[in-house]
Simulated scan of single mutants.
Amino acid sequence: MDTPDPVRVVTRVGPDRTAVSVDRTVEVTATDGLLRSVKVSSPAGQLPGDLSPDGSSWTASERLEPGTTYTVRSVAERSDGKVKRSSSRFSTVDLTLDQQTYPSVAPLAGETVGVGMPVIVSFDVAVTDKASIEKHLKVTSTPRQKGAWHWMSDYEVHWRPATYWKAGTDVTVDADVNSVPAGRGVYGQESRQVSFHVGDAVISKVNAQTHQMQTFINGTLARTTPITTGKPGFTTRSGVKVIIEKFRTKRMNSETVGIAAGSAEAYDIDDVEYAMRVTYSGEFLHAAPWSVGSQGYANVSHGCTGMSTADAAWIYNISKRGDVVEYTGTDRPMTLDNGYGDWNLPFAAYAEGSALD
């Protein structure tokens, strides 16, 4: 009577079991028998995985951690019912912090934002293999909305819908980049999942020629506000801007926008009220009680949108990060990267900023 061949169990992690790459997918296979169970464990816990329906293999469902020793324990059964237990070890290559890139995600978990808020994933170490990372980035929403990723730099990628978010949308961002190659020997450091909510559609329309701002809430005109924008030499940018951050009071110093102290245009105001930033270069909506006489009639600011204290308080109190402010009436264009400028490209052109075909 023939004796069944002994079960042969193999753990596939690459040629060097002492310096396994963290992006390897661990696979355990059996020949001349069936796998009944596989456990791959480390001091940090157990690596999840799945047995194939036919019992011939087990495949990990997550990637590996750097500088970690894993123990593989398997139970396999021969054709005659006898059981073989196997144990083996392997270790992953250790990575420095310079070889790992951490993803920060905006909006924040649980945040309620405006309809113009892009998804922003920022990395602390440069991503040069953008396609590899982008394949592991996903945005899902209820209701579902078409959108695209656009790489702003090696350190930052944005996602926006084809049109403004629908008010009331719930969004989840999955940055499943842990141990994913990011190029030049760098790997994703950690996976992140962040969910946020899109609130009411608050969209303001600023016309620098008529010196008026109309604010619409969910499509209904809620208020028309007399304003002033940038005077000659300090022209306010036209285009779509998005509120980046809010300050109940904000010190505004002309040196931060390139106006020298002591010059004719210099200013330094400690407590500008109800300030809402819309560009990185220093444009805000804010209370400007010193220019009330010009509001609705003339442009006298250094580029910001000024209004009365009462009007500024009103819009400040209804506004949130991600609300839209659309500017018209000047010949100075808003740019893609000066704040959340994502809406200043047609969607087709924006989608060309993806690293994927």
Rank of each mutant, 00 (worst) to 15 (best):
A162Q: 15
D174W: 09
Y187G: 01
A175S: 11
Q209V: 15
V194K: 05
V177N: 04
P161L: 11
T215G: 02
S204Y: 13
D200G: 04
V206N: 03
Y187Q: 02
K166H: 11
V198A: 04
V173K: 10
T210G: 02
Q212D: 02
F216Y: 15
M213G: 01
N178P: 00
V173R: 02
A167M: 08
R192E: 00
P161M: 07
V157K: 06
N178T: 04
H197C: 14
V173A: 04
K166T: 09
A208L: 14
S179Y: 02
A167T: 13
K205H: 14
A182M: 03
T169Y: 00
I203N: 03
R160Y: 03
V194T: 12
A162T: 10
Y155M: 14
R192V: 11
Q212S: 09
D176P: 01
T215M: 02
Q214I: 08
S191F: 06
M213I: 07
D170S: 12
A167N: 10
Y164N: 15
V180K: 06
V180N: 11
T172L: 01
T163M: 06
E156Q: 15
R160F: 10
K166E: 05
F216S: 02
I217S: 05
R184G: 01
W159H: 09
V171Y: 03
I203Y: 00
A162E: 14
T163D: 14
G183V: 11
A208P: 05
Q193H: 13
N178L: 14
S204H: 09
K166G: 03
T172R: 13
E190Y: 08
Y187I: 03
V194R: 09
Q189A: 15
P181I: 05
T169Q: 02
E190P: 00
G188T: 02
D176I: 03
V177H: 03
D200A: 12
S195N: 05
M213E: 10
Q209A: 12
A162Y: 07
H211N: 13
V177W: 07
M213P: 07
A208V: 15
Y187P: 08
T169H: 00
Y155H: 04
E190W: 07
V202Q: 08
W165S: 01
T172Y: 03
G199H: 13
V206M: 08
V194I: 13
A208R: 11
D200K: 15
Y164T: 10
V180A: 05
R184N: 15
A208K: 09
E156V: 11
H211E: 05
N207L: 13
H197D: 11
I203C: 10
A167Y: 10
V194M: 09
E156Y: 06
E156R: 14
K205A: 12
I217V: 15
Y155A: 06
K205V: 13
Q212L: 14
Q214P: 01
S191K: 09
Y164D: 02
H197Q: 15
A167P: 14
E156M: 14
Q189W: 12
S191V: 04
A175N: 00
V180D: 09
G168C: 09
H197T: 10
G183A: 13
Y187R: 03
R184K: 15
H211Q: 08
V194A: 11
N218L: 14
A201H: 13
E190M: 07
A175Q: 05
G185Y: 12
T169F: 02
